[in-house]
Structure formats: C-alpha cells, structure tokens
C-alpha cells in the first residue's frame, strides 16, 4: 500500500524533515507513527497527502510515485485517502451532514447516494442523531467524530490521522481509537501520527518511531 524507499525531505531553509526513511505498509494494516515534536511525523503525513514532495528517494502509494505525480493528479490521489486532523478542520457554517457529504459532493455522487453514505458514516461514529446540527453545537469529541466520518465516507483505501486524540481526554481518546480500529477491520489501512505512547501501547499495533527525521524503531508497541 505504502512504500518508503530512502525517502528524504529537505526544506529550502536547510532544515531536514526526514532522513532516508524506508519502510512498507501492507494493505489493511494499522500502524502508529510516533516521536517527539519535530521528529518528522507531520512531514511524513504531508508527503503521503502530496502536500509536499520528497527531495530524495522514492515514495509509492498504491503504486503511484508521489515524487513524480503531476499537480493535476493530486486531487484524484487524495480521493483514495481519508484524513483526520487534530483540529478537526470542520466547516462551521455547514451542518454535520454537509461537512461529511463534502468528499462525496466532490466525487459527484447523486443526492440519494450521498444521503445513504453519509448516514452510514455517521452511524459508524455514533452521530446519526446530529446530522442537522452545526459543528459549533457539538462537543470536541463529537467534532472529532464528525471529522472521522468525513474521512471515511468516501471509503478510502488509506486513512491518515494527525494527532487525532491530541485535544481529547483519555476516555474520549480511547473511543476515537476504537472507531479507527472498526474502520480498519473493514479493510482500510490506517496510519495514525501520535505521541500518546500510553494509548498506543494499549492498542498493540505496529509502531514506527521517528527521531529527528530518522526511523529508530519499527515493531509492535509494548504495553
């Protein structure tokens, strides 16, 4: 699904985000990327979303070389990915339904199909009764779940999450992680960047550890 081959990222100001990173992620795999601030977690996610391009090495996502992908192809690549942000990135002037429907509207699906899929995604995150509310009417945890529903509504092959539990209390964080596991069981690869080691340890999935842009650990999180 994902193949990093000696991938490096150097910024124009000389800062090195990633050093010759190499690893593979299988289809349907669940893994965490962890490390302190500045370790390169966000850079890794940005490379996968084609928000940035690697400066060295080869990065393949579902067979596409993200170093060579044209700008016109990027939107179509992103349609295969669901993304969840720490700050949710919801649109506060749209209802929960319309926030979640956005990727489907972009895909140009019919209204009944959109309604069916949005209902299904909201049911999956236990927000079926909130469709007509606005994000401002919801708690932080509920907002995060709306973000997750939006990320999975178009049935992506890969789900990326950047510190998705960063603003949540432990109970809510565990709930959200449960949702990710449920999604993963349906076959979606899930890659979560997080520095919440306690939470990661409880979940016993593969964990990549980054430090100053280098991969220093790759294995199952120990409890």
């Amino acid at each position: 699904m994902i193949r990093f081959e000696q991938v490096g990222k150097r910024y124009p100001n000389g800062h090195v985000g990633l050093h010759e990173l190499s690893f593979r992620v299988r289809r349907g795999e669940f893994l965490f990327v962890t490390g302190h601030s500045g370790a390169g977690k966000s850079t890794l996610l940005r490379l996968l979303l084609a928000m940035e391009r690697p400066t060295t090495g080869k990065l393949l996502l579902a067979g596409q070389d993200l170093g060579q992908i044209s700008n016109a192809q990027i939107p179509f690549l992103r349609r295969q990915i669901g993304v969840v942000f720490q700050n949710h990135q919801l649109l506060f002037d749209r209802t929960v339904f319309n926030n979640v429907a956005l990727p489907l509207q972009i895909l140009g699906l019919s209204k009944p199909e959109i309604a069916k899929r949005v209902d299904s995604a909201l049911e999956r995150v236990a927000l079926s009764d909130k469709t007509d509310l606005y994000p401002g009417d919801l708690s932080t945890g509920q907002q995060q779940r709306v973000g997750i529903a939006r990320a999975i509504v178009h049935r992506p092959a890969l789900l990326l999450a950047d510190e998705p539990t960063g603003n949540l209390d432990p109970r809510l964080a565990a709930e959200i992680m449960g949702v990710f596991e449920d999604i993963n069981r349906l076959g979606t690869s899930v890659l979560i960047a997080s520095h919440d080691l306690a939470l990661i340890a409880r979940m016993r999935h593969r964990m990549l550890t980054l430090q100053r842009g280098r991969l220093i650990g790759d294995g199952e999180a120990a409890q």
Binding site: G28, E123, A174, E175, I176, G178, V179, E181, L186, R202
Partner: peptide, 22 residues
C-alpha cells in the same frame, strides 16, 4: 477500554462484518 466504549458497542455489528472493505 476501547472495546468497552459506547461508540464501539454501537458500531460492533459493522465491525464484525467479515467482508474485507474492497
């Protein structure tokens, strides 16, 4: 803790779906 959460309980039937996503 995750398994015991309210959300997971509600989505359990779907999570139990043995069909792979593809």
């Amino acid at each position: 803790a995750t398994r015991g959460s309210k959300v997971s309980e509600r989505v359990a039937p779907k999570a139990a779906d043995p069909q792979p996503a593809r």
